[in-house]
Design a protein around this nucleic acid. Sequence first.
DNA 1: CTATTATTTCAATAGCTTTTGAAAGGATTG
DNA 2: CAATCCTTTCAAAAGCTATTGAAATAATAG
Lengths: 181, 181
Amino acid sequence: MSPTALESAKNLFIRRWGEMAASWGISRTMAEIHALLYLSPEPLCTDDIMDRLAVSRGSASMNLRELSNWGLITRTHQRGDRKEYFEAEKDVWLMFETITRERRRREVQPIVETIQRCKTMIDENKAALSATQRREAETFQKSLANIAEFSEMMNAMFNLMVKASRSGLKPALKLLEKLAG
Amino acid sequence: MSPTALESAKNLFIRRWGEMAASWGISRTMAEIHALLYLSPEPLCTDDIMDRLAVSRGSASMNLRELSNWGLITRTHQRGDRKEYFEAEKDVWLMFETITRERRRREVQPIVETIQRCKTMIDENKAALSATQRREAETFQKSLANIAEFSEMMNAMFNLMVKASRSGLKPALKLLEKLAG
DNA sequence: CTATTATTTCAATAGCTTTTGAAAGGATTG
DNA sequence: CAATCCTTTCAAAAGCTATTGAAATAATAG
């Protein structure tokens, strides 16, 4: 195999990974950097990333910081070199756990709090309601409660999956298979 | 309760729902329309949506079409009225199933196919490899295989969850909540 | 301390996505 | 079939997000 075949396969994957991430609300470049580091057996420095993905120093720096904030990559150093090097978490299940935890905290938590807040807003005004208004308000609360319940269920699922993955994931699947069977 | 309390609670939820969706790569307005319809006991027409969310006719029309394409809302008609009315799926688990199915098809499938393609690209060039190159290529393939395996596992998980919700096993899922808590 | 090298910041800009509104296109009614 | 009502389309504009590159800052070496 010419060295270019491995390179072009990696490039293909990196590009597609970036595209997928973009449709999930993650910046394309951030995802490409992540993919590059995930595939790299060695830690890479900023210049490696700039060269490989053709991005500016500023963009590399900001995206690397963001990836650190997410907890998906770590900074390392090499003896006799003052550059910083970056390394991605290679365990896919840990990656999943990290991403799930962060998205929950950043994006799911606010809506859960809002649901609670909406419920309170209605409860505090229930006394003054006509029968019709009360029925409307209760329908609304029920709709919100359904989302909240679903959200808790998903939460539990992900917790279970993470737990199961730590001790080998087949037990988790088997348990679910029994329940769904 | 004054009618505005129910309205402002709904508005609050709709706004937050739109914000959350935006960070998941779904257009804010599309999500707001979806939330409005989800909360509405009656189907709504385009003008209702335009008034309520302060969006243009064009935007309403396009977002409603997109929501139809996703399978999250349906068009209905009212006797003696030539307007079209729109209604959202109210079962949260069906909503989840629909969204999962669509995202899998649109966004996960391409990366799965790319992984397969990358594997083939390497396999077809393996004969010409030095020992070192072969080791690199195999590391790469292993990294991809880990993602593919994870993806299959998630797939199975979601299938089981959908199955469980259909066969009235939500209580069982709730039990899992405790296990994972 | 000074020079050198590396990293971060951020205002300007480029690029992308969404929204608008008006015109065109369909459908229904009398 | 003419009038009316409703929906869709799409080019232009607005709005938003990501990227750049150079200046500022920080870190290390001599």
